[in-house]
C-alpha cells in the first residue's frame, strides 16, 4: 500500500481531536472536518466495495438464463438485482466524500481502482451458484457485521441496509448446495466439484495474514476495520465446517482438524502465490470481467446521453414557458 504524503499540512491538534472522536465511537458525517488521508482511505475502501458488488453480478449472472427451475430463476435474478442495489448504495455513499460516480466508474474500467479478487474465478456449473452464495456471501457477512459499525456514517448506513438484505442471499446458496448434495449422484458430484474449486479462493477473500497486511493498522485507527483478517477468516472456517458436515460435503483440506484447546478448526496452508497471481491480473477471468463492464459502459453511452439530452430539452421548454 503506497504511503502518500499529505500535501496540506494538517493541524495535529485537529487530527488528534478527530481520532478521539472515532475512538469514542462517534460517527463521522459528510460535512465534518476529516483528515485528507481519512477521506482518501474511505473513498478507496468504499469504492472498491461498490465495484466488487457490480463485478460480482457477472459470475452469478452467467447462470441466470440456465437456472433449472422457475423458483431458482427468480431467486437468482433477485439476488443479482440486490447486488446491483448494494453497489448503488455504496457508490452513493462514496459520492458524499466528494467524488462523482462518473469518476469512480472510470477508475474501475481503467484499472486505477480494484475489486474483490474472488470474482475473477469462473462459474462453471449450476452448483457454482450455490457455492458462491454459500462461501462468498458467507465470507462477506462475516466482514459486513463489522462494517455496519464503521466510523463513516454513509458507509455504516449503507451496510446496515445491505446486511438486512443479505439474509436471503446466504440462505439461498446453502439451500441450493443442500438440495444438490442430497440429490442424484451427478448432482452430488457437481456440488463437490464446486466446493473443491471455491473453498481456497474464498479463504483468500479475507486477505493476507495480519502480519503481512500493511493497511490494517491505519484502517483500525480510522474505525473501518475492527477485527483482523486472521480472526475473521477463522470465524468463517468454524462456521462453514459445521455447515459442510451438515450436508455431507467435504472441504478440500486434508489438514482440517478440530483443535480442542482453542475451539477452532485448524486448517492447511493457503497458496499465497495463487492469491498474488490473481491479484496481479492472471486469474482465470480478470480480463473478461473488466471487458464485460467496459462493453456495458461503452454500449450504454448513447442511452445515457439521450436521457440527458431529453431532460435538457424539457428544462429548456419550462424555462421559456416561465419567461
Amino acid at each position: 500500500m503506497e504511503q502518500q504524503t499529505v500535501s496540506v499540512q494538517e493541524d495535529p491538534a485537529r487530527v488528534a481531536a478527530f481520532e478521539a472522536r472515532i475512538a469514542a465511537g462517534e460517527t463521522i458525517e459528510p460535512k465534518d472536518w476529516m483528515p485528507e488521508r481519512y477521506r482518501k482511505q474511505l473513498t478507496r475502501m468504499m469504492s472498491q466495495h461498490a465495484h466488487s458488488e457490480i463485478v460480482g453480478m457477472l459470475p452469478e449472472g452467467n447462470w441466470l438464463t440456465r437456472a433449472p427451475s422457475l423458483r431458482r430463476k427468480m431467486s437468482l435474478l433477485a439476488k443479482v438485482q440486490d447486488e446491483a442495489g448494494h453497489g448503488l448504495y455504496i457508490y452513493c455513499g462514496t459520492e458524499t466524500l466528494g467524488v462523482s460516480r462518473d469518476e469512480l466508474i472510470d477508475q474501475l474500467l481503467t484499472g486505477k481502482a480494484k475489486y474483490s479478487s474472488i470474482f475473477n474465478y469462473p462459474t462453471l456449473s449450476w452448483a457454482d451458484i450455490g457455492c458462491v452464495g454459500w462461501f462468498v456471501d458467507g465470507a462477506a457477512i462475516v466482514n459486513q457485521t463489522m462494517l455496519a459499525k464503521a466510523s463513516y456514517g454513509p458507509y455504516a448506513r449503507a451496510m446496515v441496509r445491505i446486511c438486512k438484505e443479505e439474509n436471503f442471499h446466504k440462505r439461498q446458496g446453502y439451500e441450493i448446495m443442500a438440495t444438490l448434495a442430497s440429490g442424484t449422484p451427478e448432482q452430488r458430484a457437481m456440488a463437490q466439484d464446486a466446493v473443491n474449486r471455491w473453498w481456497w479462493p474464498s479463504l483468500m477473500m479475507f486477505g493476507p495474514s495480519d502480519k503481512d497486511s500493511p493497511n490494517s493498522a491505519e484502517l483500525t485507527k480510522w474505525g473501518v476495520k475492527r477485527k483482523g483478517n486472521d480472526e475473521l477468516r477463522q470465524r468463517f472456517v468454524n462456521l462453514t465446517v459445521a455447515q459442510a458436515q451438515a450436508i455431507d460435503l467435504t472441504l478440500p483440506d486434508p489438514d482440517l482438524k478440530y483443535n480442542e484447546a482453542t475451539g477452532n478448526w485448524d486448517f492447511g496452508p493457503i497458496d499465497w502465490d495463487e492469491f498474488q497471481r490473481v491479484l496481479k491480473g492472471d486469474g482465470p477471468c480478470n480480463r473478461e470481467r473488466i471487458a464485460a463492464r467496459r462493453a456495458a459502459h461503452e454500449e450504454g453511452a448513447w442511452v445515457r446521453v439521450a436521457a440527458s439530452a431529453y431532460a435538457a430539452k424539457r428544462a429548456g421548454e419550462t424555462a421559456s414557458e416561465a419567461a
Binding site: 435474478l77 446491483a84 462493453a295 456495458a296 450504454g300 445515457r304
Partner: peptide
C-alpha cells in the same frame, strides 16, 4: 434477464 449486469446504467 439477459440485461442484468449489462445495462447502460446501474
Amino acid at each position: 434477464s439477459e440485461w442484468c449486469g449489462h445495462a447502460p446504467i446501474l
